Amino acid sequence: AVTGSQTALLLRAFEKDRFPGIAAREELARETGLPESRIQIWFQNRR
């Protein structure tokens, strides 16, 4: 499950760019500790 702090970080990124590229998703994966594929799905679901 995604924690509150991970969600906050993802929401901030989403406000800046609703369609992040692979580099941005990989950076978010490093920052959150989540797999990049999970980040991609999160953005798809959020849109």
Rank of each mutant, 00 (worst) to 15 (best):
R12S: 09
K16M: 09
D17K: 03
G4W: 13
A1G: 12
A29Y: 02
T32L: 11
A13W: 09
I41W: 11
L11K: 07
T7S: 11
F14V: 01
E27G: 05
N45V: 09
V2I: 14
S37P: 08
T7R: 10
R12M: 10
L11N: 12
A23V: 09
E26P: 01
F19N: 07
E27I: 09
P20V: 03
I22S: 06
V2L: 15
I41Q: 15
G4T: 11
P20A: 03
R12K: 14
R30A: 08
E31G: 03
P35A: 10
G4C: 14
L34N: 00
K16Y: 06
R18F: 05
K16P: 04
F43K: 00
F14A: 00
A8W: 08
W42S: 00
I39F: 01
E26I: 10
G33S: 04
L34R: 02
L28C: 00
N45K: 12
T3M: 09
P35I: 05
A24P: 03
L11D: 05
S5H: 13
E36N: 05
L28E: 02
K16W: 06
R46E: 12
A13L: 08
W42N: 02
E15L: 11
F19Q: 04
E36V: 06
K16F: 10
P35Y: 01
L28M: 05
S37I: 13
L34V: 04
Q44W: 08
K16D: 07
P35S: 15
A24S: 06
R18K: 13
T32N: 00
Q6S: 05
R12Y: 08
R38S: 13
N45Q: 11
L34Q: 01
L28A: 00
G21C: 03
A8D: 11
A1P: 13
G33R: 03
Q44K: 07
F19D: 08
Q44F: 07
N45L: 14
L10M: 04
Q44Y: 10
G4D: 13
R30T: 05
Q44L: 07
E36A: 09
S37R: 08
N45M: 11
E31N: 08
E27H: 11
N45S: 08
Q6M: 12
R30H: 06
T3S: 12
G33K: 05
P20W: 02
P35K: 07
Q44G: 05
G4F: 13
T32Y: 01
A13Q: 04
Q6K: 05
R30P: 00
L11T: 12
D17S: 07
A1C: 15
Q6R: 07
L28H: 00
R12N: 10
A1S: 13
I41K: 12
R25F: 06
L9H: 06
W42I: 01
A1H: 10
R46T: 07
A13M: 08
S37H: 11
T3K: 06
E31F: 08
I39R: 00
P20Y: 02
K16E: 09
I22L: 14
A13F: 12
F14H: 02
A8V: 12
I39V: 09
L9D: 03
W42M: 02
L9A: 11
E31T: 12
G21S: 14
E31Q: 15
G33P: 00
F43A: 00
L11R: 06
A1Q: 14
P35G: 04
S5G: 07
T3A: 05
A23C: 15
I41N: 08
F19M: 06
A13K: 03
R18S: 10
Q44N: 09
P20R: 00
A23D: 12
E36C: 07
Q40N: 13
A29I: 05
E36Q: 09
L11P: 03
G33H: 04
Q6E: 04
E15M: 13
S5Y: 14
A23E: 14
I41E: 14
R47P: 03
R47F: 05
F19S: 05
G33E: 02
T32A: 04
I39T: 01
R12G: 05
T3Y: 04
R30W: 08
T7D: 14
E15W: 09
Q40V: 13
I39E: 01
F43L: 03
A1V: 11
R47V: 09
A8H: 08
Q40H: 07
T7N: 13
R12H: 09
F19A: 05
I41V: 09
R47D: 05
L28S: 01
T7V: 12
V2P: 13
A23W: 09
R30F: 07
A24R: 09
S37W: 15
L10W: 00
I41D: 11
Q6L: 08
G21P: 09
